[in-house]
Nucleic acid binder design. Structure first.
Lengths: 340, 340
DNA sequence: GAACCTAACCGAAACGTTTCGGTAAACAAG
DNA sequence: CTTGTTTACCGAAACGTTTCGGTTAGGTTC
C-alpha cells in the first residue's frame, strides 16, 4: 500500500515549512499568493488529502456529529422520519467535511448512556436531540458535558438551539376541512404523552376545535404504531356515540386505525373520516389513500445540521422555523355520514 | 467546562508512567496485577475515557466503519432493509468501541466519490458494500485504496469477504407452495438487472420452476418500487394468457402489483396469487396480507460487522452464510382459479 | 556472590495536523 | 542611516494516545 502522503510531503515538495502549507490550504493569511499557488499545485500533484485523524487531534474537533436513534424493534424500518432527516443532515454537513455518526439504542434506558459515550470520548463535536421528551434527560446531560446540541421540534422554552416545524396551521386546516364536511364529533389518536410532539399535536387539535366552538372528543394513545392504531379503533368505535372524524398523531397509527375500522365493517370515509400526520409516501398507496399532514424531515435535518455546525463553531445561533407542515387531502376523509 | 481528564491524569494519580496506564487499560502484559488494579481504580475515580482522537492518531485506526446508502428519493424511508441492517451492525460494533459513519449519496454516480472520500481522509477503517451491482466499481476502488470491505449478498466469485443469505430455499418453498395450490403459470417481477440480488432472485425462481418441469413465464422489471409493481401489473395482466402466480423480487413492488391488480378488478388471491420478498412488517398489515420470504437484515448486519472488524484487524476471514430466508405464507396466495 | 534472566516499569518518539511565538527581510518614516 | 512596522515564513510545541527500546529490581542458577 502506497505511503500515505502527508503535509510533510507537500511541504518538502514545495520547499516551505509545514506551517505554511497548513495556512495555505486552509486559506489563512500569512502566505503570499505566489507560494500559496505553489503549495496548492504541489498538494494537487501529490494527491494530498489531510488526515482527519491528525487535524482532529490538533484542532480539537472530530468533524463528526452524532445522532442516536432509539430502536425499539424496528423504528428505522417503519419510522419514515429518519430517512429524510438523515438525508437533510448529510446534504449540509458533507460539504463541510463533517460525517454523521449514527448510533442505535436498544431501549430508552440506554439512550442517555449512548450520548454520554459519544461525548466522553469526544467522538463527535455535537449531537442532534430528536424525539424530545418532556423534561428530557438528555438536555442537562449535554449541558453538563458542554456538548453542542440542537433540539428537533422543541417547545418554546427549550434551552438549546432548535429547529421547529409548526404543526398548528396543518392541523387547523385539517379541522377546517373536516368541519366543512359537516363533522362535529372529533376524536384524537395521540402518541405517548412523554413526547413533546405528541402533546403539541394533541394541543393543536384541541385548540383548533375549541376555536370553532366544537367540544373535543375522546383522546386515546395510539403509541405512534400500527398496533396502537388498531387498539385505538377498538376503543373508539365500540361506543354507540362514536366520532365521525378521527385525527391520528402519525400516519402509521392512522393506517392501523383504518384497517381495524374496516375490519369492524365501517367504510372509510363513508362512515368515518380518518387522517394521519407525517405524510409518508405509503399513505398514497393505501386504499383509501390517506389524508395527512405533510412534514419536511429533509428540511428539518438540513436546518438542524446548519445550526449544530454553527454551535460547534461557537457562533451564536437563532432558532429556525421551517415552513409549516401542510395539509394533504386525499381519500380517507369525506362528508359526515347522514345521521340515520 | 471541566478540564478533560487524560491518560496523564490517570498516570499522575496512580503514580506510574502513562505507558503503564495504556498497557493496563488495554489488558496488555507488562504490568503487575497490583498496579493494574491501582490504575483501573484511578481511571474509574477520575472518570477517564480514552480520547478517540488520540488513540486513532497513534493507533492508525479511526474506530469507525462506513456505510454509504444511495438515496434516490427516499430509499431510507421505504427500504426496510437498512433499518435492520444498521441495527445489526451497531449491535456488534458498539461493544468494540466502533461507530458507524453513515453517508448518503444522491445518485449512483456520486457513490464512488463518497467511498473515495471516506477512504482518503482515512475517516473510516473499513466499509460495507451493500446493494452490489454486477461488476461493481466499488470493488476495485476499495482494493486500490487498501480499504477493508465486506460485501453483502455477493455472488460466489466475490473477491472480498462477504455475507450471504441464501434465497433459493425460500423461493423454492414458495414455488412449491404455489404449485401445490395448482398454479402452473408463473411470472416474475424482478429488480433492476444491474443488481446482483435482482439476478439471484430471478435465477432462483427460474431454476425452481424448471426443476419442477414448469416453463417460467414472463419476467418484467419492477424496479423494487411500488410504482414499478404497478407498471408490472399493467404489463402482465393485459394479456389474455395472464399468469396466475406472480412472484415479486421485493415486497414493495408486490404491494404495488396487488394494488394495481385489484384496481383492474382482479381478486387477490382469488384470481391471482402474488408474493413478495423481504418480509417487511407492513406486509402483515395489508389486505390481503402478503405472502413473502422473510430475510434477516439484522443478522446480516451483525455478521457483516463481525467480518469487517476481523478484516480491519488483519485477521483472516471466512465468508458467512446466515440461515436462509424463509417462506411466510399469508393471504395473498391461494388456490389457482378454476379455469372457466 | 557473580552472572544471567525476566517481569515490571519508565521515557520518549511517533502519529499528522494546527497554532503560536519568533525571525528575517522588505519597506516606510523620520 | 536609523528606527519602526509590516509581511512572509519558519520552527517547535501541542493535542492524547500507542509503542518500543531501555532500565531497574527481583529472582535463579551455578
Amino acid at each position: 500500500m502506497a505511503h500515505r502522503v502527508t503535509i510533510n510531503d507537500v511541504a518538502a515538495r514545495s520547499g516551505v515549512a509545514i506551517s505554511s502549507v497548513s495556512s495555505a490550504l486552509n486559506g489563512r493569511p500569512g502566505v503570499s499568493e505566489a507560494t500559496r499557488e505553489k503549495i496548492l499545485a504541489a498538494a494537487e500533484e501529490l494527491g494530498f488529502v489531510p488526515s482527519v485523524r491528525g487535524r482532529s487531534l490538533a484542532g480539537k474537533k472530530t468533524f463528526s456529529v452524532g445522532l442516536v436513534v432509539h430502536r425499539d424493534p424496528d423504528v428505522l424500518e417503519l419510522d419514515p422520519f429518519f430517512g429524510g432527516f438523515i438525508g437533510g443532515i448529510e446534504s449540509y454537513i458533507d460539504e463541510r467535511g463533517f460525517a454523521l455518526v449514527l448510533q442505535t439504542s436498544p431501549g430508552a434506558s440506554e439512550i442517555l448512556e449512548r450520548y454520554r459515550r459519544l461525548a466522553a470520548g469526544r467522538r463527535v463535536d455535537g449531537v442532534f436531540l430528536n424525539e424530545l421528551e418532556v423534561d428530557d434527560a438528555r438536555v442537562p446531560t449535554v449541558q453538563d458535558l458542554g456538548l453542542p446540541a440542537v433540539g428537533i421540534g422543541a417547545d418554546d422554552a427549550f434551552p438549546l438551539p432548535s429547529v421547529r416545524q409548526d404543526h398548528r396551521p396543518g392541523i387547523d386546516a385539517l379541522v377546517e376541512h373536516l368541519t366543512e364536511l359537516g363533522h362535529t364529533h372529533f376524536a384524537f389518536v395521540g402518541g405517548p404523552p412523554r413526547f413533546v410532539h405528541s402533546r403539541q399535536r394533541e394541543l393543536a387539535w384541541r385548540e383548533s376545535l375549541t376555536a370553532r366552538g366544537i367540544t373535543p372528543g375522546p383522546v386515546v394513545d395510539g403509541g405512534f404504531t400500527y398496533e396502537g392504531g388498531i387498539a385505538a379503533a377498538n376503543a373508539l368505535l365500540a361506543n354507540r356515540t362514536r366520532p365521525t372524524a378521527v385525527i391520528c398523531a402519525n400516519d402509521l397509527s392512522a393506517m392501523g386505525f383504518i384497517a381495524q375500522a374496516q375490519h369492524h365493517g365501517f367504510d372509510v370515509p363513508g362512515d368515518l373520516s380518518v387522517a394521519g400526520y407525517d405524510g409518508i409516501q405509503l399513505g398514497s398507496y393505501l386504499r383509501p389513500t390517506l389524508t395527512t399532514i405533510q412534514t419536511s424531515p429533509n428540511q428539518i435535518g438540513f436546518e438542524a445540521a446548519r445550526l449544530l455546525l454553527q454551535a460547534i463553531d461557537g457562533e451564536p445561533t437563532v432558532d429556525v422555523n421551517v415552513p409549516a407542515a401542510e395539509l394533504v387531502i386525499r381519500h380517507s376523509t369525506g362528508p359526515v355520514p347522514s345521521s340515520n
